[in-house]
């Protein structure tokens, strides 16, 4: 890891197409996003590949957009949004704007340490189309997760595993990597803008026959989560039904 790599990335625009794009969806993240950007920029700059960082705002009402733009990094883009439409909307805009051959989306709270990226990159290099961080796979580590969130996760995982074919045990971890082609096809087909967009993306990935690797990762329940577990569980179940209905109605037929 070299400080010079970071300094070079900060001031020198990538020539041509980046190998990697990292997308951070952000809504009212003025307190959390700068340390996360610092950690990502430090680590990814040392991987020896041209890369870009995209912060996809979701209509923040605080100074998220201003403080990120003020960084002035050569390879950092901020996608502004007029309205708050949900995490799925912010991720979608970021993924579709990404130019990298490989695209990662990563939460603004650094709940999955960026050092875990190497595990996902390895799977993409092995030929998988999608590599997803998983807190349910054998070998994963979860820290500081509240009992309520743990119960909600386990319940939803049971539903997903037994009723829904998403091709993964942990659909909701905010650390997922795609080839550019898979990202473009899947996020263009996405219809859900809220928290359960991941579920739709994985459902579609499974339906379209993409190869998905579920990779155990370390994960920390970062303080300041904006999730209301009860509300999100209800919305999640509603979205499960919506995805199935979409499929039956042929909404995804032309994707």
């Amino acid at each position: 890891m070299s400080y010079e790599d970071y300094q070079r990335w900060k001031i020198t625009p990538v020539e041509g197409r980046p190998t990697l794009s990292v997308v951070i969806p952000a809504y009212n993240e003025e307190m959390r996003i700068i340390p996360t950007i610092g950690a990502i920029a430090s680590h990814v700059s040392s991987l020896g590949m041209p890369w870009e960082l995209i912060v996809s705002d979701d209509g923040s009402k605080d100074r998220t957009v201003q403080i990120v733009e003020e960084l002035g990094f050569a390879n950092l883009r901020v996608l502004r949004a007029q309205r708050n439409e949900g995490k799925g909307s912010a991720v979608r805009r970021g993924m579709l704007a990404a130019r990298g051959e490989i695209v990662l989306f990563d939460d603004a709270d650094n709940s999955t340490p960026i050092e875990e990226i190497s595990k996902l990159l390895e799977k993409i290099r092995e030929g998988y189309d999608i590599a997803i961080g998983s807190r349910a796979a054998r070998g994963a580590e979860e820290a500081n997760k509240s009992l309520v969130r743990r119960a909600m996760s386990n319940g939803l995982r049971w539903v997903v595993a037994n009723i829904f074919s998403a091709g993964a045990r942990d659909t909701q971890c905010g650390f997922k990597m795609f080839t550019h082609e898979a990202a473009q096809r899947l996020f263009r087909a996405q219809t859900i803008s809220g928290f359960s967009f991941d579920l739709e993306i994985l459902y579609l990935a499974n339906k379209f026959g993409y190869r998905i690797a579920e990779v155990p990762i370390a994960w920390v329940d970062a303080p300041g989560s904006k999730l209301d577990p009860a509300k999100e569980a209800q919305r999640f179940l509603r979205d499960l039904v919506k995805i199935k209905l979409n499929d039956l109605k042929g909404v995804y037929a032309n994707a």
Partner: peptide, 10 residues
């Protein structure tokens, strides 16, 4: 290094 960079950015 990551912590040093976080101090710089803030």
């Amino acid at each position: 290094q990551p912590v040093r960079i976080i101090f710089e950015l803030t």
